[in-house]
């Protein structure tokens, strides 16, 4: 199980590796680095083809190595989320964010309120 606070409490705890989470299941405040975009997560949505979603995410800047932080979440079921992505901000639904795997930086899981 990942440490408390890393993953939203309602997300199933079947992460393969403790410090890598699907962005769509990340809690507000987590920071880290994108390690994979277009992940075959099995949860990727009925919405569009996974390959199409992958390119869409890449084009707006979700690319391996990008720095990421979940800044805000919507007030209904914490969806959508607003993330800092390198030096820009992007909003997306958790459903689509699931295709992004993030390696969470250690120790700063409650940094939501701090100035960067």
């Amino acid at each position: 199980m990942p440490p408390a606070g890393l993953v939203r409490s309602d997300a199933p705890g079947d992460e393969p590796c403790a410090d890598i989470v699907q962005l769509g299941r990340g809690a507000r405040g987590i920071r880290g680095t994108v390690v994979q975009v277009g992940a075959e997560t099995g949860t990727v949505p009925d919405c569009i083809a996974a390959a199409e979603l992958e390119r869409l995410l890449l084009e707006i800047g979700f690319v391996e190595g990008a720095a990421i932080e979940i800044l805000h979440e919507g007030f209904i079921r914490g969806d959508p989320i607003a993330v800092r992505l390198d030096d820009m901000r992007v909003a997306l639904r958790r459903r689509e964010a699931d295709a992004i795997l993030v390696r969470v930086a250690g120790g700063s899981t409650h940094a939501a309120g701090s100035e960067s």
């Binding site: 979603l53 707006i60 959508p80 901000r89 992007v90 997306l92 639904r93 689509e96």
Partner: peptide, 8 residues
Amino acid sequence: SEPFIMEL
């Protein structure tokens, strides 16, 4: 349905 991915 279209994904919602938008720059802020």
